[in-house]
Amino acid sequence: MFSVLKLVAVCLLSASLVQARTAGTTTTTWDCCLPACGYTSNLSAGARGPVKGCNKTNGPAAPDAQNACFTSGGQAFSCSSYQPIIISNTLSYGFAGHGNTASATCCKCYQFTWTSGTAQGKSMIVQAINAGGITDTDFDIYTPGGGVGDFNACTAQYGAPAGGWGRQYGGVTSDSQCSELPSNLQAGCHWRWQWAGGDVNTWQITYRQVNCPSQLTSISGCTPASI
């Protein structure tokens, strides 16, 4: 009887964990802007940061540098190190925009698993370094060649076309188009097609908040409150 009750308890716990995950979608972005979490005023409660910004050549941005997306001649950009990182055949790390309010999500980490698309069953752990996406449950994955979206600092930083590489929203449409990007961004562009296996945009996921891997916080320079 004890073993049966124990089994029931385990099943109920497993069900509650599954229910705790939230459904969402993934999109891609690479606009070269200083991320929203690069401003101390946007950090989530308890986070230590802000997220690092870079200059035009991917060195540290000057402390008083203005966001290249919002100030003519601005010299604060996104860093090339915010590309996806392959950990295994089924897991990648990376960075993303998430949530419609920066102060609610900045620097927090999330693990999601795709439930549709070619990457179905694969997972990512991402740190939120920006806000804003298609929906509040969307993860806008930082992916070179992923589309500049509403703002474009890639022309100023890399000489990209006025609408970015590929589509303004969604970016390049094939792995071969990754060769159009600067050499230091091509690995992150290939990630989408060679590791995830496709476009990634509008693929369905389930996700939950997790503690951040040190590999991500060491890149971003921002550490959120522990959960």
Rank of each mutant, 00 (worst) to 15 (best):
M1S: 15
M1G: 15
A9H: 13
L13V: 15
S14A: 11
S16V: 12
T22Y: 09
G24K: 08
T25D: 10
T29E: 10
C32R: 13
G38R: 13
L43I: 03
S44H: 08
G46V: 03
R48L: 04
R48E: 06
G49F: 02
G49V: 00
N58L: 03
A62S: 09
A62H: 03
D64C: 04
C69W: 07
F70I: 08
T71L: 01
S72A: 11
G73A: 06
G73I: 04
G74T: 05
G74H: 07
A76Q: 06
S78F: 07
C79N: 00
Y82L: 07
Q83K: 02
I87C: 05
N89V: 07
H98D: 06
H98S: 09
A104M: 06
T105E: 08
T113Y: 00
T113F: 01
S116R: 06
T118G: 00
A119E: 08
M124D: 12
I129M: 11
N130C: 12
I134A: 15
D136A: 12
D138T: 15
Y142T: 14
Y142A: 14
G147E: 12
G147F: 15
A153Q: 13
Q157H: 12
P161R: 08
P161M: 13
A162R: 15
G163H: 14
G164A: 10
Q168F: 10
Q168L: 11
Q168E: 12
G171Y: 07
T173W: 06
S176N: 09
C178I: 07
S179H: 02
N184S: 02
A187W: 01
G188Q: 01
R192A: 04
Q194V: 06
G197L: 00
G197P: 04
V200W: 03
N201W: 02
I205S: 01
I205Y: 03
Q209R: 01
Q209W: 00
C212R: 04
T217K: 03
S218C: 00
I219P: 02
S220F: 02
G221Y: 04
A225T: 04
I227N: 07
